[in-house]
Design a protein around this nucleic acid. Structure first.
Length: 406
RNA sequence: CGGAGUGUAGCUCAGCCUGGUAGAGCACCGCCUUCGGGAGGCGGGGGUCGGAGGUUCGAAUCCUCUCACUCCGACCA
């Protein structure tokens, strides 16, 4: 798995146990950027952020019946009072519990609550680095509506929000019809990033390949399905336009109606004073998995090629000759100016040979490299190189700064 | 959960078969070389050999147990 190899070589993460990772400085910056984009789009879609505990009491899960259904994937343990506890693999029960305690009237609906929190699923076989870890960071949100029409609107709203979220990360996600699995329910779609190494097989209309990621409506209209739900006879796509590919699942949206609200008695009072069991949906985005998926979708033989919005730094400043007065002065000045302008800059002031520094910069894949060397300085120029295109140009310090700040 | 492996220096691994004072490359530290695409030379530091028992005069090496990790498969919001 190339993304995992690059993650280790670039020092993004360190495995501490099977499927459990420590996030190192560079990797954490990426994780935070992904998290921020997800959060901004959730807020924009009208969701409200909460934060629920990672450790949950078994009683909640007994109420929904899932304590027995979930199986060994759930990490269970007891506290000192012999109370049965678990490390949350998901949060339907807890959010339903919170909802039923505070929301009493149909006038408070619709409501959509989300959190970005660590989950734990005791996978039999963790693999692919952070893409299939046991502990992972996930954005999960839950919608509450008065009826099916409302729930459908919430579902569609999340559909749009997800496409927008992934597009902002430089990713093209395909929303495929999916099996709802253990969550239950009828409406269900997975968001897949195309990658040869993906775990899921998908089928989709070739028109999607040429579709702009920002054309949300156009994208939504086209056919795409997970292997399990695909039927060549009824999909409606001409055979020559049907594509088969592999994908990495980075998001999943579900409508499941009253499965949990009924079991846990989550009702609101309706206009006529009657008790109405709320219609729910849940929606997940694998935040930590996205870090791996982005690398899988964006790298070359030299290393990672970060899309700008999630890059750990905007520019890597390379001082080719540390200890040389002119180089040090120029590099330090540029560093100060970039910092002052709010540009995220990583300054390589190691006493290493040029080749080592270039190789490191390519590996960690920052969008821009600004190279300061004695040869260029003598001619009054520095080198500005784009990681994605590989093109570099020798320009004055002033124009380089203008380009990076602007 | 079935099957197959691997645990020896920070990393990758040799040594184990055939027991006898723990090695290499890379990384790290110092000096030299001043070197714009992962240099070279000299010197140096670093390991309870995953853990516990056992056999033996003597165990990284043989035996038993145990723990961890990896890969293949099944499983999987």
């Amino acid at each position: 798995m190339i993304s995992h190899q690059l993650s280790l070589r670039a020092g993004l993460v360190r495995q501490t146990s099977a499927g459990i990772y420590a996030w190192l400085p560079l990797g954490l910056r990426v994780l935070k950027k992904v998290e921020r984009i997800v959060r901004e789009e959730q807020d924009r879609a009208g969701c409200q952020e909460v934060l629920m505990p990672t450790v949950q009491p078994a009683e909640l899960w007994r109420e929904s019946g899932r304590y027995d259904d979930y199986g060994k994937e759930m990490l269970r343990f007891s506290d000192r009072h012999a109370h049965e506890m678990l490390y949350g693999p998901t949060n339907e029960e807890m959010i339903t519990d919170i909802f039923r305690q505070y929301v009493k009237s149909y006038r408070d609906l619709p409501k959509n609550l989300y959190q970005i929190q660590w989950k734990f699923r005791d996978e039999v076989r963790p693999r692919f680095g952070v893409m299939r870890g046991r502990e992972f960071l996930m954005k999960d949100n839950y919608s509450f509506d008065i009826d099916f029409d409302g729930a459908k609107r919430s579902y569609d709203n999340m559909h749009t929000t997800y496409l927008r979220t992934f597009a902002r990360m430089g990713l093209k996600a395909i929303a495929v019809r999916a099996d709802p699995g253990a969550i239950g329910g009828s409406l269900s779609q997975e968001f897949q990033i195309l990658a040869e190494t993906g775990e899921s097989k998908i089928f989709y209309d070739a028109e999607l390949d040429s579709m702009d990621v920002n054309d949300i409506e156009g994208t939504r209209a086209l056919y795409a399905s997970a292997e399990e739900k695909h039927d060549p006879a009824t999909c409606g796509v001409p055979p020559d336009r049907l594509r088969e590919a592999r994908g990495i699942e980075v998001g999943h949206i579900f409508y499941f109606g009253t499965k949990y609200s009924e079991a846990m008695n989550a009702t609101v009072t309706g206009p006529k004073g009657e008790a109405i069991t709320v219609e729910m949906g849940s929606y997940g985005i694998g935040v930590s998995r996205l870090v791996g998926a982005i690398i899988e979708a964006s790298h070359d033989e030299k290393g990672i090629v970060w899309p700008e919005p999630v890059a750990p730094f905007h520019v890597g400043l390379v001082n080719l000759r540390v200890g040389d007065g002119a180089c040090d002065t120029a590099a330090n000045e540029i560093y100060e100016k970039l910092q002052a302008a709010g540009v995220e800059v990583l300054y390589d002031d190691r006493e290493e040979r040029a080749g080592v520094k270039f190789a490191t910069m390519e590996l960690i894949g920052l969008p821009w490299q600004l190279v300061i060397g004695p040869r260029g300085l003598a001619a009054g120029v520095v080198e500005l190189k784009s990681r994605a295109s590989g093109e570099s140009e020798e320009i004055s310090v002033e124009s380089a700064l203008a380009r990076l700040v602007g």
